[in-house]
């Protein structure tokens, strides 16, 4: 075998580190996940698609995807604002705010779910005020989106923040000095440069939201065809001892999030190459 698999490098430890990485990855992630795929293959192709195409499953996919998409979009807008503030804003307690960004990572999802539901339920101060304005959050698709924003926001902030910090301000100054308006500078110069990390944050938030369970079930209302998310349907199938059905939905959900992640890594690689050549 004279196939060149690796570019020559003076550094040692390639075999060891790659070997261990692949071994551990297989043990903890790949072998267990393959169980999922095998189990769903019990259904056969027609059975698999029949499960996936059931109106209630399709409806749950629709709710999950729409909410996750909306949540990721809102997370991007909010996340870029907060990242901008953290990098360039002048505020005495900025460090404290910075430390709080990761809170949703660390808080158990069930706790966030309960807290968000308590916050937005119609009998709470905020939920009541919103209901007075005609906005219902808890037990509606909006509630699902809110929970997903909570989960997704840190991903966007943490993706954009370092890129923003490294952004070369000379470019902006040049644009401004050439007579571009502040808005034009932002839109034409800064945003394109931030596009790769924004995209990466968006996709991470999106794929995380797709699978979210703990924080969503409390606030969702869980009505079939309306506010039932895909991961709840997996649990429901599971509790009816329908393993094949549960794994089929799981595989479909996983394939879609995987597609999203592959896409972002591809775009990032492209973008890095592009920026590197620029």
């Amino acid at each position: 075998m004279k196939l060149k698999l690796k570019e020559t490098s003076a550094l040692p430890g390639f075999g060891l580190s790659l070997g261990y990485t692949v071994f551990y990855l297989s043990l903890i992630v790949l072998v267990p996940l393959s169980a999922l795929v095998f189990r769903s293959s019990e259904l056969g192709f027609s059975g698999f698609f029949e499960t996936i195409r059931h109106p209630r499953v399709l409806a749950s996919f629709q709710v999950t995807f729409l909410s996750a998409f909306k949540a990721a979009l809102v997370s991007v807008v909010f996340g870029v604002t907060v990242a901008w503030f953290l990098v360039r804003g002048r505020f005495p307690l900025k460090r404290l705010v910075d430390a709080l960004v990761d809170l949703p990572f660390a808080l158990p999802t069930a706790v966030s779910g309960i807290a968000l539901t308590a916050l937005f339920a119609p009998n709470s101060t905020m939920g009541g005020a919103l209901a007075g304005l005609g906005v219902k959050v808890a037990f509606t698709p909006t509630g699902i989106t809110v929970a997903m924003i909570f989960i997704g926001l840190p991903f966007v902030i943490r993706s954009v923040q370092p890129a923003l910090a490294d952004l070369n301000t000379e470019l902006e100054e040049a644009a401004l000095s050439l007579g571009a308006s502040r808005f034009q500078t932002l839109w034409r110069v800064v945003l394109p440069l931030l596009a790769p990390p924004i995209l990466s944050g968006f996709t991470l938030a999106f794929s995380r939201a797709l699978g979210e369970y703990g924080s969503v079930v409390f606030i969702a209302g869980n009505m079939p065809m309306k506010t039932e998310v895909a991961s709840l349907l997996i649990i429901t199938k599971l509790e009816q001892f329908d393993y094949a059905g549960a794994t089929a939905i799981a595989v479909a959900l996983l394939s879609l999030s995987l597609l999203a992640i592959l896409l972002i890594n591809l775009i990032q690689t492209r973008a890095t190459r592009y920026l590197g050549n620029a």
């Binding site: 539901t117 308590a118 339920a121 119609p122 009998n123 808890a138 037990f139 079930v217 209302g221 869980n222 009505m223 079939p224 709840l232 649990i235 429901t236």
Partner: peptide, 21 residues
């Protein structure tokens, strides 16, 4: 007439009692 379907009896009771639904 059911606005929320919780997954268990205790969840439903919490929705009714704590959330006032």
């Amino acid at each position: 007439h059911v606005p929320v379907l919780d997954s268990g009896a205790r969840g439903a009771a919490t929705t009714f009692v704590q959330r006032g639904i």
